[in-house]
Structure formats: C-alpha cells, structure tokens
Design a protein around this nucleic acid. Structure first.
Length: 111
DNA sequence: CTCTTGACTGGTT
DNA sequence: GAACCAGCCAAGA
C-alpha cells in the first residue's frame, strides 16, 4: 500500500521537479536507492491518482523521453499539452531536447 | 498461495 | 543498430 515511504518519496521528488523540466523513472528509482526498481516508480505514479496532493506525473517520462504514461492521464493528450504549456517541445509523444530539459535530482538536490 | 501484468532499465545477442 | 532476455517490486486475479 501507500504506507511505504517509497511512494511518498516518489511523489515528493516528482513534486520537486521544476516547470519546463522532466525526469525519467530510472533516475527517480536510482535516487531512491534502487536503480532497477523503475517499475515501482511507475506503479507509484499509478497510485498517485488517489493522492490528495496533485503529482506532476506529466513531467515523468521514460529514459527515451517518450510519454509512456500518457495513456494513464485523464486524456491521452493532456500530458503533451501540459509539457508544451511548460515550454517543453513534444513531437510524436517524444520530448525534444530531452537532455536539455532532463532534471537530475543528484545534481539539483545534491549540490 | 501461485501466476500474470505493469507509467522501466540495462545488458547481451 | 535493433531485438531479446533478465532483474526489480508491487498489486490484482
């Protein structure tokens, strides 16, 4: 259940992602301690729907910068719209300049 | 209790 | 360079 701090850590970390930036599951998973538990991040995001606080899951994409979780949003186009609204260029469900908008918790939070 | 699926990644073939 | 296999944790059937 959401008792695990892992979920809260994921939500908190995702909420710390600034606008115009995106993060990938593996990076979040690695920051939390498990580099290959990226599936848990995805599952945590799936549970984020019932969270009282809004989670900017649209800023979370897979390692290739693809909007893998867009289908889990209210609308399949909401994710792209939100990203483009924040200044992120999305083409064919892929984030352009992915490395430029990629947000690294290690670099940003560990400075 | 066992098996399958899932918003994933990395390494090997 | 693309495709397949293996690993990780959790929840639903």
């Amino acid at each position: 259940m959401a008792d695990s701090e892992f979920y809260q850590n994921v939500y908190d970390l995702v909420r710390q992602i600034p606008e115009g930036r995106v993060c990938n599951y593996g990076l979040i998973a690695r920051y939390l301690g498990s580099g290959r538990s990226s599936r848990l991040v995805g599952w945590a995001m799936n549970a984020s729907h019932g969270e009282p606080k809004p989670v900017p899951a649209h800023r979370v994409v897979n390692r290739m910068g693809m909007l893998s979780g867009k289908a889990h949003f209210q609308t399949p186009t909401l994710m792209q719209e939100l990203l483009e609204k924040e200044g992120i260029v999305v083409v064919d469900d892929q984030v352009q300049n992915f490395e430029s908008v990629l947000w690294n918790p290690f670099q940003e939070l560990s400075v």
